[in-house]
Amino acid sequence: MSSAENPVSRSLPYAGSARLSPPWYQRKAVRTVLYHVFVGLATLAMLYPLLWLFGSSLKGPSEIWTRQTALIPNEIHFDNYKNGWDGFGDISFATFYKNSFFYAGVGTLLTVSASAVVAYGFARIKFRGKRIWFGLMLLTLMLPIQVQIIPQYIMFNELGWINTFYPLLLPRLGGQAFFIFMIVQFIRGIPRELDEAALIDGCGQGGIFFRIILPQLKPVIITAAIFSFYWTWEDFLTPLLYLNSPKLYTISLALRTFSDPSGATNWGEVFAMSALSLVPVFLIFVFFQRYLVQGIATTGLKG
C-alpha cells in the first residue's frame, strides 16, 4: 500500500527474499482466495432464506418448527407437494396455475406486441405532437396507480366485468410505458439505411415495421417479455381487486388464502406451494439471465 508499511515487512523473518514482493495479504492468490471466501459467504447469506424455503417445503410437521435452521430435512416429505397441490375448497392448484399462466401468458403477449408497435411509431415516424405524447408517456411511469384504480374499478363494475379477466387484460392493449421506452431506445440504435431504402422502394410504414424493424427487435422483445411475464405472474393488487371467486384465483391470490395464518395448519404444504410458484420464475431466470442483466443495465428498469 504505502511506503510507510515497508519497514514492517522488512523486519519479518522472511524479509530477505520478500523484500520486493508485497506482504502476504496483498499477494494476488491470497487476495483472490479472500475475495471468494468473503463474496461466497455473502452470497450464501443472500440465498439462505430462499434455500430455507425450499428446505422447509420438504420437512415433515415434526421438523418444521423444531429444526428451523437446517436446510436439509432429516426425513424428506415430498407429500407436502402432493397434498398441497390439492389446494382448498375443492379447487386444486392446477386451476390456479392455469389461471396464472393464462393471465401472464396473454397479458405478456398483449403488452409486448402493443409496446413494439407503439415504440416504432415514437422511434421512427415524424408526426405532429409526438414530443408531447412521448413526454406524457414517460410521466405515466411515475404515476402511482392509486389515482387510477378507484375510477377504473367503478368503471369495470358498471360494465359487469368483476370476476372476469377483462379488467386485467384490456388495459394491456395499449402496451406499457416501461417497455415502450425500452423498445424505443433499442430502435433508435438500429441504422436507418434499410428503412430509407425500403421507403424509396415504396414500402409503407407498416411494411417497414413488419419486414425490417420487427425481425431485428428479437433481443429487446425477449427482455420485455421476461419482465412482463414476471410482473404479471407476481401481480397481486389487480387480481385482488377484480377476481373474487376462488375458481379464478391466480397463484398470488391462492397463496394468500392458502397461507392465511388463521386457517393454515400444514406449513410444509404452504412452503411447498410457495416454493413451487417460484419455479417458473427461476427457470426463466436461469436460462435468460443475459437478457435480464442487459435489459436492466441499459434502461434502468425496476425489478
Partner: peptide, 9 residues
C-alpha cells in the same frame, strides 16, 4: 401513420 402506430397506447 404516426397516430396509427401510437393509437393503441
Amino acid at each position: 401513420a404516426g397516430y396509427l402506430f401510437i393509437s393503441p397506447w
